[in-house]
């Protein structure tokens, strides 16, 4: 047993060393790709109106989406395009998405074969991670904002459901047992506001939410940080819904540093902070120091074990 112990310890130590160095260098452990879009900081309000000149003035990233081709139901490959940009201020973040669409598809009374146009943005719950692209995994869930024409917007979480105990799920405001791998977050977290217009064969959509995270399964936005997103689009006129959709790969976004660091960002959340969040918000330096302490402890144990005469 004594002889087997060192490799395990070495692995643990190595993990901490790498994590520590990464933290020291402020490098995310995993990134989507080179950030292609900068989330601009705005000193003022974010317009909810998709027609506002503000959105015209921002650089946009054009993303090509391909048919989802991993799980049933499948369709022949085809592509679609979305243009996206984003901006944030001290309290909120806004995503602007636009795309050409020859038909405006919204649900109507009696619309048994009518499917609404829809768009979703998927983000990792944990900053720096890059979960499984198809709606995350138990250990690495994803947060999704889903918009359906004309005005439905939902905050969803996927992947986490089956990895939590009933007690943990209840504490998170979810039903005791998961009914689906993708779930709606509790009403208190349904804080997205969306506004969309369809004009001249084009949808323009703005979705706004507070930057801070008030729920352990909600992605927080950190000034200066990086965001990875996946875009999905459902074209109603092609009967797309559920898995019949077009998706992008992981796309990188860089959240611009504000001219003066807005300390208030993390202060937007006060009474609703949960224990888990407090843990999440522990400064990186503290994590590094704790990591170093563990390395020292591990090394000490290792040396002590080596010195102790074998009983065999």
């Amino acid at each position: 047993m004594v002889d087997r112990a060192p490799p395990a310890l070495v692995i643990i130590v190595s993990v901490f060393v790498v994590a520590g160095l990464a933290t020291l260098l402020d490098t995310p452990l995993v990134t989507a790709q080179t950030p292609e879009l900068v989330v601009r900081y705005v000193n003022g309000s974010l317009p909810l109106d998709p027609r506002a000149d503000f959105w015209e003035g921002l650089d946009k990233m054009e993303a090509t989406l391909g048919s989802q081709s991993i799980v049933y139901p499948l369709t022949p490959q085809s592509t679609a395009t979305l243009r996206i940009t984003a901006a944030y201020n001290l309290s909120h973040i806004a995503f602007y998405v636009e795309w050409e669409d020859p038909s405006m598809d919204v649900e109507v009374p009696g619309g048994t074969d009518v499917f609404a146009d829809a768009v979703a943005i998927q983000l990792p719950v944990s900053e720096g991670s890059l979960p499984y692209i198809c709606m995350g995994t138990v250990s690495d869930p994803v947060y999704i904002v889903y918009w359906k024409a004309p005005e439905t917007v939902e905050a969803l979480v996927a992947g986490s459901g089956y990895g939590l105990s009933p007690e943990e799920r209840e504490a998170l405001g979810l039903s005791k047992t998961p009914k689906s791998p993708i779930e709606k977050l509790p009403e208190s977290e349904q804080d997205w506001v969306a506004s969309a217009i369809y004009e001249g064969g084009m949808w323009r959509l703005v979705m706004v939410r507070e930057t801070g995270s008030t729920h352990p399964l909600e992605t927080g936005i950190r000034p200066g940080g990086e965001l990875s997103i996946v875009l999905a689009r459902w074209e109603g006129s092609q009967y797309e819904r559920g898995g019949l959709k077009k998706i992008s790969g992981w796309l990188g976004l860089k959240v611009e540093e504000p001219p003066v660091a807005p300390e208030a960002v993390t202060e937007t959340v006060t009474e609703t902070v949960t224990v888990e969040e407090v843990v999440e918000r522990v400064p990186y330096s503290v994590v590094f120091v704790a990591g170093l302490a563990l390395i020292v402890a591990a090394a000490t144990i290792y040396v002590m074990l080596r010195r102790r005469p074998s009983s065999a």
């Binding site: 049933y72 139901p73 369709t75 022949p76 009696g110 619309g111 048994t112 074969d113 009967y239």
Partner: peptide, 19 residues
Amino acid sequence: KLEKENHYKPPSIEEYYHP
């Protein structure tokens, strides 16, 4: 059959009937 033939369209209300 719907998967084999990529036939995902359900009947329209007019195919049922307009109530």
